[in-house]
Amino acid sequence: MADASHLAYRPGPLGRSNTAPGLSVRELTQFSLATVIARKGMATAASQRAQAALGTPLPEQPRMTAGNPFAFVWSGPAQWLALGPALSQPVEHVLDATLGAHASIFDQSGSRRLLELHGPNVREVLAKGMSIDLHPRAFKTGDAAVTTASHLGVHLWQVADAPVYRLLVVHTYFDSLWRWLAASAAEFGCDVQTPTPYSSHWA
């Protein structure tokens, strides 16, 4: 088997380097993350409350909606991930204050690692481990999916038409996911960028 030493997250070029990289990947750090599950029968009320207090309704379809300071990523019926920048208070407190009457809030800020991916071959790279169709006719900016990548449960959503994707995976499996991603991107060349603090906007 080929030498695997190139398969660790380390800023710099990875894989083929004689052409422009087919994939750019950057880890986003310092984010707040929470699972939000509506109380029984209260999904609509929770969504209305989110609209009023956080600037966005809660998506009813596999979509991502951007509010302030949180974006909400659909992650199941009446269930979402709230994702935002690191806050001075615990995310559970902040969301409890707005949604607590209608939903249960579970802090997940320390549970995941978040990658941002783009580049001319990004779809080909992801297709090596993801079964969903990312063709622009099927998956557009704002679309989100709860799916698997290389047998690992992930959340994926598209943040820009370029396309730019964000991929969320539990931190204990990050190394396995990364080894697959690095192996899959190697033939196109990959620019592994220095991790940066989370921002809702694609820089």
């Binding site: 088997m1 481990g129 290389s150 931190h171 190394d175 396995s176 080894r179 192996a183």
Partner: peptide
């Protein structure tokens, strides 16, 4: 495919 040797199945690392 990719899933052989140490990648045969995902490995979960403790903190």
């Amino acid at each position: 495919g990719h899933h052989r040797g140490m990648d045969f199945r995902p490995t979960r690392y403790t903190p």
